[in-house]
């Protein structure tokens, strides 16, 4: 399937785009992470949570939606 992935905050600077579409044939979030880490090595060192269908999910969650977002914590105040 084709996933649409949004990158929030500084993750957009790491990937060089705020949104992209990627082909994905895997099932789990950890498989998706592996693909993204291969594509963007710097992403490995960043803290973020993965959002599917506007809901926070864990590594074990299966990917069922095509809308994914990567949300980092923001320190600034």
């Amino acid at each position: 399937m084709i996933l649409s992935i949004k990158y929030f905050g500084l993750l957009a600077e790491v990937t060089g785009c705020s949104e992209e579409k990627i082909k994905f044939s895997g099932k789990s979030i950890s498989e998706l992470k592996t693909i993204l880490f291969q594509k963007y090595e710097m992403l490995k060192n960043k803290d973020f949570q993965i959002v599917q269908n506007n809901e926070l999910i864990t590594n074990e969650t299966k990917i069922t939606a095509t809308e994914i977002a990567l949300l980092p914590p923001f320190a600034g105040g």
Binding site: F8, L71, F74, G76
Partner: peptide
């Protein structure tokens, strides 16, 4: 809680 980054906020 709130946090900000450049042009974005939570």
């Amino acid at each position: 809680y709130a946090g900000i980054y450049k042009f974005e906020g939570q």
